[in-house]
Amino acid sequence: MRRKRFLLAVANHSVLIGVSALFMFPIIYMFFTAVQSNDQALTGSIWPHPFVWSNFKTVFDEINVWRYLWNTFLYAGLSTVGVVCSCVPVAYAFSRIDWRGRNIVFLLVLSTLMLPTQVTSIPLYILWAKQFHEWTGIQFIGTLKPLIIPSFFGDAFSIFLLRQFFLTIPKELTDAIRVDGGGHLQVLWRVIIPLAKPAIVAVALFNFIYAWNDFYGPLVYLASNQDAQTLSVALSSFRSLHHVDWNLTMAAALIFMLPVIVIFFLAQRVFIEGITLTGVKG
C-alpha cells in the first residue's frame, strides 16, 4: 500500500516536471541562444560553445537600450501611480458608500471592460494629434503623455478588482469609525487602505506589468519618434532594422523580459491571488 502510494507520487511528479520543462523550454532556449556566437545561433544547437557574454554589451552598443528602458519605466511607473491614486477612491465609492444609481453606474464601469481598444484608440489618436494639441499647445503624438495621462482618471479593471476586495472587509470595522464621527476620508485612510494593501499591491503590479509589456499603445503613439519608444516597440523592429543575428535578438528580448520575470518571482503570490479574486468570485 505504501509502496503503491510512493509510486503514484513519483508518477505524478514526473508528469508535472515534464510539463514544467515544456513551459520553461522557450525561456531557457532564449537564454542559451542569447549567449551564443553569431555562427552558432544559426545552427540551432542549444549549448553555447563558447559563451559569448559580450552579446549583451553589443546590444547596448547597437541600440540605445538605456533610453528605451527609461521610457518603458516612465510609462509603467507613472501610469501605475495614476491608476492606484485614481481607482482606490472610486472603488471605495462603489463598495462602501450608498448612493442612487450606484449599481447602474458600476455596470457601466464593467461594460467598458468589453469595449475593444480599437473603438476608442482611433478618435483618441485624432484628439491627441489635433484638438488636445491645439487647445493646449502641447505636442502629444510621439511622447508618452497619451499613454500616461488617461491612467490618472481611473481604469475599469482596477476599479473592479479593488471593489471586489473592499467588499470582503467587514462593515463593522468601517461603521465603528463612522459612528465616532469620522468622514469617508478617514475610513478610507485608516481602515480600507491598510486592510486592502494586498489588493492595492496586486493592482499596482498588474498595471506595471501591463504597461511594461504594452505594445499596441506605444506602437500607435510612439512609432513616429524613435527617442520616445518603449522597449516593446523598439524590440519589435530590432531584428528587421538593426540586425539579422538571432543571438542579439534573443539577448535584447531577454533584457526586455528580465524585469518582468524578476518582479513575477518576487511577487507571484500577489498575482495569483489577484487573478483568483477577479475570476472566481465575480
Binding site: 514544467s20 525561456i27 505594445f215 523580459m257
Partner: peptide, 17 residues
C-alpha cells in the same frame, strides 16, 4: 509558479522567441 510565469511575459518578446 512555473506554469503561470509565461502568461506574464511580454507578448513582443514571446513572439520573437
Amino acid at each position: 509558479t512555473l506554469f503561470f510565469m509565461p502568461s506574464m511575459a511580454p507578448t513582443v518578446g514571446a513572439s520573437l522567441v
